[in-house]
Structures are given as structure tokens and as C-alpha cells.
Computed example of a mutant assay.
Amino acid sequence: MSDRPEIVCICGSTRFVDEMNAANRDLTFAGVIVVAPGVFPRAENHEADELITDEQKTALSALHLRKIDLADRVLVVNPGGYIGESTSREIAYAHATGKPISFTDTF
């Protein structure tokens, strides 16, 4: 048994920044180490997607997979059951690597 707290990786569409922040807060207060997206272009600026290059998007996607590698489990923030293309890839990756996956909303 490890002395360290559980590590949870939050996944989901970056359009749900408020919901991700709430999940992060709740988990943190519960004593969990949280890794989550660090860039929320849709929340920061409507035109931010244009400011992030395809190369940057690819790098951020790869970085998030490494965050999943670090985690003990994955929490998918999916209000209304929404799962987008990127989140679907992250879920498939987590599943393939044997990470337990839970969802904030059933679908």
C-alpha cells in the first residue's frame, strides 16, 4: 500500500471548464492529487482555437495521454452525457492501459 494520495486524471471537453474546475476542487478537498487539462481555449476566448496551432493541439493531446499514464484512475467530466472525439480517444487510451474510468454523468 502506497503512502501517496490517489492520482486522478480529469478528462472531458474543454467547453466544460467550470465543471472540470468543480470536480478538481472536490477531488482536491478529498485529498486526491488531480491532473487535468491546462489549456481551455473555448473558455478563454471564442477565437482561441485559431490561436492554437495544429502542432500545439497535437502536443497537448499527447501530453494529456501522459497525464493518464500518471493517474491511478480517470474521471470523465461529461455533462449531459456528452463525449467528444478527443475525450473518446482518451477513454480508449485509458481503457487500453487498464485505468479505471468513471463518469460524472451517465450516458
Rank of each mutant, 00 (worst) to 15 (best):
D69I: 05
F107C: 09
D18F: 07
H95A: 15
N21L: 08
C9S: 14
C11R: 00
V17E: 15
A43K: 06
V17G: 04
A43E: 13
P5Y: 09
F40I: 02
D54K: 09
A43I: 06
N24I: 04
N24E: 14
T87C: 10
V32M: 08
E85A: 10
K67P: 02
A43D: 12
T53M: 06
V32L: 08
F103A: 03
S86A: 10
A36K: 14
E50W: 07
T14V: 15
L65M: 12
A71C: 08
I33D: 06
V8K: 00
V17C: 15
G12T: 00
I101H: 12
E19C: 01
N45F: 14
T14L: 14
I52K: 04
F107K: 15
T104F: 02
D54Y: 09
A94Y: 12
G12F: 01
S102Y: 03
K67A: 11
L27N: 08
P79N: 02
L51H: 10
I83H: 03
L60K: 06
C11E: 07
G80I: 05
S13H: 01
F40K: 00
C11V: 12
I91P: 15
I101T: 13
G31M: 11
D18V: 07
T58S: 00
L75D: 12
P5D: 09
D26E: 11
R15Q: 04
D54R: 08
F29C: 10
